[in-house]
Computed example of a mutant assay.
Amino acid sequence: MNKLLTVTAIAGAFAFQSLTASATSYDPNYDFGDMGPTASGVTKSITASADNSWGDYDMFAFTISAPTGVTGSAPDVDLAYWFDDVDVKSVALFKNVSGPDPQIGNTDTSTEQFSFSNLGAGSYYLKVLVNGDADYKVTLTTSPTASAVPEPEAYAMMLAGLGLIGFAARRKQQ
């Protein structure tokens, strides 16, 4: 028993060391900060700069403290000169964790409007692929996710079921 405990402790130490050694956290370009949610939601906008005509990724970090839905916009910018335009190609959402960041859902290529639903509390970042050499605006809005509350009929059915189980158990004893 003691040998098994020692081997388990050593294996756990190696596993923890490998996790911390490979931990890399991504540093976003822009930070929305805490996005709530509150009862009415939170909306914030950030002006970002696209500075590469061949494609560049901008990262936008944010944190939510309760289950939330997130909607936003990252519209293209069409200026007078073709070399000043900004073309937003895609928006993807990632959970901000150490190591490889898991993508949440699919990459949204419609980009004028995007949405991600049923996000749990935690830190996230948007990865926006842009072409161009000008400023553009990303707007993010959170809306609280309503938790499911059982209807009174559900409670009545549960109590009736428990009563039937109790009746059957009592009858079986007799």
Rank of each mutant, 00 (worst) to 15 (best):
M35C: 10
M35F: 07
G36I: 01
G36S: 15
T38A: 11
S40I: 03
G41R: 09
G41K: 05
V42W: 06
V42R: 06
T43S: 08
K44E: 00
I46T: 01
A48D: 05
S49F: 03
S49M: 07
D51V: 06
G55W: 00
D58G: 10
M59A: 14
M59S: 15
F60R: 01
A61P: 02
A61D: 07
F62S: 05
F62I: 07
I64C: 05
S65A: 10
A66E: 07
P67L: 08
P67R: 14
P67Q: 11
T68I: 06
G69I: 09
G69L: 13
T71M: 12
T71R: 15
G72D: 15
S73D: 09
S73N: 10
A74M: 06
A74C: 12
P75S: 13
D76L: 13
V77N: 04
V77A: 08
D78A: 10
A80K: 11
A80P: 06
A80E: 11
Y81D: 04
W82T: 02
D84C: 06
D85A: 08
V86R: 00
V86E: 00
D87N: 13
S90D: 04
V91L: 03
A92G: 06
L93E: 06
F94M: 05
F94E: 03
N96Q: 09
N96F: 01
N96K: 09
N96W: 06
S98C: 00
S98T: 10
G99K: 13
G99C: 03
P100A: 14
Q103W: 02
I104D: 04
G105Q: 04
G105H: 05
N106R: 04
N106Q: 14
N106A: 15
T107C: 07
T107I: 05
T107L: 13
T107E: 12
S110W: 08
S110A: 10
T111K: 14
T111P: 09
E112G: 12
E112S: 14
S115G: 06
S117W: 11
A121L: 00
A121G: 10
A121E: 02
G122S: 09
G122H: 01
Y124W: 11
Y125P: 04
Y125E: 03
Y125W: 01
Y125D: 00
Y125F: 15
L126T: 02
L126K: 01
K127L: 13
K127R: 07
V128F: 08
V128P: 05
V128D: 05
V130T: 09
N131K: 02
N131F: 00
N131M: 02
N131G: 10
A134Q: 03
D135S: 11
Y136A: 03
Y136R: 09
K137Q: 15
K137H: 07
T139G: 01
T139P: 00
L140E: 01
T141A: 14
T141R: 13
T141N: 07
T141E: 12
S143C: 00
S143E: 14
P144E: 05
T145C: 05
A146R: 14
S147A: 15
V149K: 10
E151A: 14
E151H: 14
E151D: 13
P152T: 11
E153L: 13
E153M: 14
Y155P: 06
Y155H: 15
Y155A: 12
Y155R: 08
M157E: 15
M158E: 15
L159F: 08
L159G: 04
L159K: 04
